[in-house]
């Protein structure tokens, strides 16, 4: 095939895929505010995303905070700037590390699980069965996942913020010999509400992206086990990339001078 033609065909395919995703997202969001709602399904997703993801997010952010304190000390001690460690840990965790790490962990855990579950439902005709039982699959399957993604990730990130700062505190106080009170006062004085809020906004956006990618790829999967496998991979990869892109854009909006 002519290379220009191939490039054009690829570009058109890319636009078509983006169009389908946009229509799917708008459809899902519009159904979020229109009854009927399925409280049991929403509760199930809230528990699945919020409660069952807590250990993985907690461990990730705790150790990220600990490592951050250690690495910062290694660098800052060269300039006798160890006193900046509490603020560096607090700002890094709340603004960047906690939301991004939680988002990526949730993309792996929840995005993959959503794509696999919905993909299996699609290829085993369970989605068709919903339609025949007068139930809109978008309302029953997609809306609870989108709502749970948007609402639960900020809670997880808030807990991640606390645990990350706690991890930095433990390493600084018990390993690097910082004064407990000074560390806590420095952390409290440097951190601002905007730091935490920007992290929570990022978390809500990341939660939406993870749920959207999991639902979109799962709901549209075709071709049996291989199709479900491909949907799962696509959901995780696309959610992870979108999280990193969205992270830059939200940071630009909040903190660009």
């Amino acid at each position: 095939m002519n290379p220009v033609r191939a490039l054009g065909a690829g570009f058109l395919k890319f636009l078509a895929a983006n169009g389908r995703l946009t229509v799917f997202a708008l459809n899902g969001v519009s159904h979020c505010v229109r009854p009927p709602f399925y409280p049991r399904m929403i509760l199930r997703q809230l528990i699945d995303i919020g409660y069952y993801s807590l250990p993985v997010v907690a461990l990730t952010t705790l150790f990220a905070g600990m490592v951050l304190a250690l690495q910062s000390y290694t660098g800052f001690s060269r300039f006798s700037a160890e006193g900046a460690i509490p603020s560096v840990v607090a700002l890094s965790m709340t603004r960047e590390l906690s939301p991004v790490l939680a988002g990526l962990m949730i993309a792996g855990r929840i995005g993959a699980s959503m794509a696999a579950e919905l993909g299996t439902m699609r290829v085993t005709e369970q989605v068709d069965a919903l339609e025949t039982l007068s139930t809109n699959p978008i309302k029953y399957l997609i809306v609870p996942r989108l709502l749970a993604g948007v609402t639960m990730l900020p809670f997880l990130v808030l807990i991640g913020d606390i645990l990350g700062i706690f991890g930095g505190y433990v390493v600084s106080v018990y390993k690097l010999g910082f004064n407990e009170q000074t560390y806590l006062i420095n952390t409290w004085n440097f951190i601002e509400s905007q730091d935490v809020i920007s992290g929570l906004v990022k978390a809500a956006v990341f939660g939406f992206l993870v749920a959207l990618m999991g639902c979109y790829h799962g709901f549209n999967s075709r071709g049996g086990a291989q199709g479900v496998g491909a949907a799962t991979t696509n959901a995780v990869v696309s959610a992870s990339i979108l999280i990193l892109i969205a992270n830059y854009m939200i940071t630009e909006i909040f903190f660009a001078q």
């Binding site: 299996t120 439902m121 085993t124 005709e125 369970q126 068709d128 069965a129 025949t132």
Partner: peptide, 12 residues
């Protein structure tokens, strides 16, 4: 309308 699917399509 009721429908019996080929593989029953029960919700797991």
């Amino acid at each position: 309308i009721g429908m019996l699917f080929q593989n029953a399509a029960l919700f797991d």
